[in-house]
Design a protein around this nucleic acid. Structure first.
Lengths: 205, 205
DNA sequence: TAAATTAGCTTACAGATGTACGCTCAACTT
DNA sequence: AAGTTGAGCGTACATCTGTAAGCTAATTTA
């Protein structure tokens, strides 16, 4: 049971994280936020920030962690829907786009800091995305009987295409996003078909 | 013939551009550079900067333009080599990695600002990359008899995979870059094979 | 040769930033 | 009940930023 004090602290901490998320946009990256701006938005004095985070970096890593959580929830959602049958690729893309749309800023920090200038950030994002890749590789290895190397290469390619499309989709209107999603589906099918072909080629010699 | 005055001005302008390029690194993006830093590196007074560029943004766009130039030179180089025969994919990847290695900071600004926070920057980079895509799509349409839509999707996928690998390769040691390049070749083959398969599927109905 | 132009400089200023220090007072511990 | 802890605050400071204003001296133009 949390004391009234710890409760209030948690609330302020959340306010800080939310303030940071809310300031993100197409034209505002995390690294361009200042400690004072975040504190202002969260309605606390700049110096009070330090009661919750050592510095902005620590705040950012917390946000990336939350991003990872969103990613994993997305995977679960996709799996559930896929069990009901239908094209796995189509279902996955639709799920991705839905989650992207309802958590744009979560994806913003992931997609931006993935190639950002802070090594710890890049590592943290890479770790989260690695989940995706290895899970997908494992799945393909099992259901499509791919060799481990091929499965890995395939999974990486799929994830690369999906995340890249995600980055582009972030600042699009719904109509354009639809076009993008359709094209993405085609590209993913290319990779899947191609991996299959390469697999057969390897087996027949 | 350039007057002694215009000559000196051009020299200083180059010093500014070079100073900016030299300050780029894995942990330093263009948007994190300040006007004063660049001026300092170029050994001119901060206020003299304005004799050459309206602001940092203008400098950055100039740098992106130079990046586009590098990209086009790369394409020419790749085409020349490919004419001598061999795997087009392998040759292209090797050429890309070579050019990347000898112009890391040119690629840094392209790869970073592609998903950066400045709309003009994003547009400028997108324009340069679009050259790549449409040229590639046209080539595939002609030589592999792809439908325009499929050729476009395929070209986009290829370029996405290449640039993504490029971003990852930037901060790698030579050995790891080799592994990455090999995997990239496999992924590109997947896309090519898969596009072929999709094309046949469409034709047979 | 005289006048006009201009690249680069120095000085100056207002605003923003991160953070050190010390206070208060509500909440918790003993 | 008395004492301790700690979240949040206000003040303060050194540092950095972009850029305005005006000067100098070399080059260019007339």
């Amino acid at each position: 049971m949390m004391g009234i004090r710890a409760q209030q602290k948690e609330k302020t901490r959340r306010a800080l994280v939310d303030a940071a998320f809310n300031q993100l946009s197409a034209e505002r990256s995390f690294s361009s936020l200042s400690l004072r701006e975040v504190a202002r938005e969260a309605k606390i004095a700049p110096t009070s920030f330090y009661r919750h985070f050592k510095d902005m970096n620590e705040l950012g890593l917390t946000m990336v962690d939350e991003g990872g959580l969103t990613l994993r929830q997305m995977m679960r959602k996709g799996r559930q829907r896929a069990e009901a049958g239908g094209s796995v690729i189509r279902i996955s893309v639709d799920t991705f786009m839905e989650v992207l749309e309802s958590n744009p800023n979560v994806f913003r920090i992931l997609l931006h800091e993935r190639s950002g200038t802070s090594a710890p950030f890049r590592a943290a994002v890479a770790r989260e995305i690695e989940h995706f890749i290895s899970e997908l590789a494992h799945y393909t290895e099992a259901t499509a009987k791919r060799s481990p190397e091929l499965a890995r290469a395939q999974a990486e390619a799929l994830v690369t295409l999906v995340f890249n499309a995600g980055a582009a989709a972030l600042d699009m209107k719904r109509v354009d996003r639809k076009v993008l999603a359709d094209r993405l589906v085609i590209q993913l099918r290319m990779v899947a078909k191609g991996a299959e072909a390469l697999q057969h080629k390897m087996e027949n010699r």
